[in-house]
Write a protein that binds this DNA or RNA. Structure first.
Length: 269
DNA sequence: AGTACGTCCTGATCGC
DNA sequence: TGCGATCAGGACGTAC
């Protein structure tokens, strides 16, 4: 579910909700496995009493600097966040909850229980393994091209590799490859610099389009709407056999391990 | 290092 | 309509 644009909108939602400056007075985690940092007890007791000092994002990860330490959040496949007022009834699938000193609650909602939580002494414990964020201005077209050119794996795999560039997931990888007319199975190193330049632009096009779309279509309570892959803002239908919106050939599905890629065999080369 | 696969979970959708 | 199979936007661990 949440890739870079979705997580960035969660970040903006948390800032709008004015959680910065609030203190966590109570914490509960229904599913202990979600806590990835050292010990579970240490997580729960460690976040209590901490004041939230900010909301940062790197790739698909949120890091909340606290007065001491950092609270890390990752949404997994189906995670989302809500800042609930005292009168708001609890949602279904709340897996963790942080009560604030103004009686609101930050709820981590995740049907599939794949979200992750950290309490870290240093942010590198949360995001240390990641490459630069896909929207980092330091990732210029030249840097992108040079980085990708070194890789022999299929380009789709390289885009999904968070240690190379962070924030691109399955949907936006497929979208960008479609826009740039590149076959997801193509080995990265065999793609010309010019076409990698097109891909760089396509990544920014699809991420920026999504960022704006999500911001302009909030849910009624102000949360970022969880856009689904079949939303009409997507250029590429995620269905095998659907006509390509550009050349009307039938789209194909290709499985890389356990992830599906959809692409057009006619205009993606 | 790269690649391939299984694993963690639950819900929605598909095909018969 | 019912029911089992398959699929789902993520990431990590293990084995080759």
């Amino acid at each position: 579910m949440p890739e870079l644009p979705e997580v960035e909108n969660i970040r903006r939602y948390l800032l709008r909700s004015r959680i910065v400056g609030r203190r966590i007075v109570k914490a509960s985690v229904e599913w202990p496995r979600m806590v990835k940092s050292a010990d579970f007890e240490g997580f729960v007791t460690g976040v209590i009493g901490r004041r939230i000092a900010g909301v940062d994002r790197h790739g698909k990860y949120l890091s909340l600097p606290l007065d001491t330490g950092w609270l890390g959040l990752h949404m997994g496949m189906t995670g989302s966040v809500r800042v609930a007022a005292p009168v708001d009834p609890p949602e279904r699938f709340i897996r963790a909850e942080f009560r604030l000193d103004d009686d609101r609650r930050i709820e981590l909602i995740d049907p599939r229980k794949w979200a992750s939580l950290w309490l870290a002494g240093d942010p590198s414990e949360i995001t240390g393994g990641l490459g630069p964020d896909a929207t980092d201005p330091a990732v210029t077209r030249a840097v992108f091209t040079r980085t990708v050119k070194r890789r022999t794996a299929p380009i789709k795999q390289v885009l999904l590799d968070q240690a190379t560039i962070a924030g691109i997931g399955n949907i936006y990888a497929d979208e960008a490859l479609f826009i740039a007319r590149i076959d997801p199975r193509r080995r990265a190193a065999t793609i010309s610099e010019a076409r990698l330049g097109d891909l760089y632009e396509a990544i920014h096009t699809s991420l920026n389009h999504a960022l704006r779309h999500i911001e302009e279509h909030p849910m009624s309570d102000g949360r970022p709407y969880v856009v689904d892959a079949y939303d009409d803002r997507m250029r590429l239908p995620r269905r095998e056999g659907s006509p390509c919106p550009r050349c009307s050939k039938q789209l194909r599905r290709h499985a890389f391990g356990n992830r599906s890629s959809y692409y057009c065999p006619g205009c993606q080369r």
